[in-house]
């Protein structure tokens, strides 16, 4: 799997903060294509800030973020946002005066991507996230929350970015819709080899991610690799079974001992 994004000792603090009051401090990590990442943490832990730094909406104070081996500091961030990454927000951030299709076409226009028939491509993208053309022709405000989020995902895919950043993408959605959106993300990662980074509070989202990171007061990133965890879980169960077997054997032995003792005691009384 190719490394697409790399965080190298990233530090960030607000402009009006004290010199040692960092929101994020020395965050380092590498993100790969083909995986769904979940960034978890308590409120104020710096999840959204980290996402803003990765998306180029904010600049890190120390350290650097590299995309495809190029530092963001040296890149045209507007170009980076309209070609390299797609952003999906909790509140969708679609333009309400446009239809779903127009929102996607506008995104293609901004990225200056060369597509013969942009409308056709927009419809295909909508279909890929489970929306038909009829829905695509509606103003986004006339769509449900789940549908708007699908439009936002389709928009973020319109210029075929390698990384999708999602900030609480299912925060406003019910459980079933959340699962549908997560399925879309998983498919994008596993079938289209995209790198999906989701900031979330949802345990369900975290459970569905390939890797989970927990930010604790911005001072570090704790890695939970689901694959290892699964492996660990499997080893534990067997050991438990062994222990249980041992316990059962011990129990049987004890029971036998007790029975033998009772028998010998009764013989002595007689």
């Amino acid at each position: 799997m190719g490394k697409i994004l790399k965080l190298d000792n990233v530090c960030y603090r607000y402009k009006d903060a004290k010199p040692d009051e960092y929101v994020l401090k020395n965050i380092s990590y590498e993100f790969e294509k083909g995986k769904v990442y979940a960034i978890c943490g308590k409120s104020g832990s710096g999840k959204t800030t980290l996402l803003s730094l990765i998306s180029g909406l904010e600049k890190c104070e120390e350290g650097k973020i590299t995309y495809d081996s190029k530092s963001l500091n040296e890149m045209d961030l507007d170009k980076y946002r309209n070609t390299c990454i797609g952003i999906v927000f909790q509140s969708f951030n679609l333009l309400p005066h446009l239809t779903a299709i127009e929102n996607i076409i506008l995104s293609m226009d901004i990225s200056n991507i060369k597509v013969e028939n942009k409308r056709k491509r927009a419809i295909e993208l909508l279909e890929s996230v489970g929306l038909n053309e009829d829905k695509g022709n509606r103003r986004v405000l006339k769509l449900s929350g789940g549908e708007q989020q699908r439009v936002a995902i389709a928009r973020s895919l319109s210029y075929n970015p390698q990384v999708i950043l999602a900030d609480e993408p299912t925060g406003n959605l019910d459980h079933d819709t959340e699962n549908e959106i997560l399925n879309i993300f998983r498919e994008l990662a596993h079938k289209q080899n995209k790198c999906i980074i989701i900031v979330t509070h949802s345990q369900n989202v975290a459970d569905n991610a390939d890797e989970v990171f927990e930010l604790c007061k911005g001072k570090g990133m704790k890695k939970e690799d689901k694959q290892e965890e699964k492996n660990n879980n499997n080893d534990g169960k067997e050991a438990k079974k062994d222990k249980e077997k041992v316990k059962e054997v011990k129990k049987e032995n004890n029971n036998n001992k007790q029975q033998n003792n009772k028998k010998s005691n009764s013989k002595k009384k007689k």
Partner: peptide, 13 residues
């Protein structure tokens, strides 16, 4: 809001 959205999706100032 429109400005914010357009800037977020990469429209140049």
């Amino acid at each position: 809001y429109e400005i914010g959205v357009l800037r977020t999706i990469g429209m140049k100032k």
